[in-house]
Design a protein around this nucleic acid. Sequence first.
DNA 1: GCCCAGGGAATCG
DNA 2: CGATTCCATGGG
Length: 263
Amino acid sequence: MIFKIRDHFDLDKTLDCGQCFRWVKKSNYWSGVVNGYLSNVYFENQHLKIESDLNSLTFWKNYFDLDFDYSKPIKQFLNYGYPLSTATRENSGIHILNQDPWEVLCSFIISQNNNIPRIKSIIERLCRCYGTCHDKYYSFPSPKIISSLNISELSAIKAGFRAKYILDAAKCVSDLKVDLDSIYSMKSCDSLRYLQSINGVGPKVSSCVLLYGFHRTDCFPIDTWIKKVLHKFPDFNFDLLPHKGLAQIYLFSWIRSHPEYLE
DNA sequence: GCCCAGGGAATCG
DNA sequence: CGATTCCATGGG
């Protein structure tokens, strides 16, 4: 299927900004597994082309967030001063994906005290070992599947100390002690506390789940890089900024590509 | 060998 | 309470 893109949209940055971990860049397209379906995505002259057995216009429009009006927050960010103005100028093509909440939760548990290449390799092993095999790719394993494992079986993915956190999350989610669907009707501050009832889920991981799995742009995940930015620019106050989660994404991408600006 | 990586729990003053 | 330490693993 094909979408005509009106606003500025950068597919490369959207899939390579650290919000998702299973998309792989091929020659002129991206290949990934989304909700159990192998999908290939192309972008050329303002058209987004998607080849996937997941053949739903509304799903993909939502996944790539094509109905959200980015122009207003972008305009505000551009007038908010350095460094957000610069970060926005360089990264305003990024869209916030609407990913599967369980995959986001599990992925960002794995992300803690870790680096992006290794996060990807651990997730890949998780899918290969315990996901469902379709022809030549693997779906992301369900919470029920993972909750049936013991800690030594999970050690195969080499997640280290995070393995016990993955197990607790899978158990909580599969027996509905943490009902992810209920979050859709909860306020962000309540869902943050709710998610943090999972062992291994704190302020940062819960914020990422809400931002990348539920499009809660009022959440502002503070990781090591954002911490450095806030320390370097103490006058920058995001508390009252609308859609500050989007600002966080721009700032994260910006500082990752220019770490020298911290000196 | 040492340091760090999209943090959070356990422990300590 | 806030501050520090530990947690597995792998690449630089």
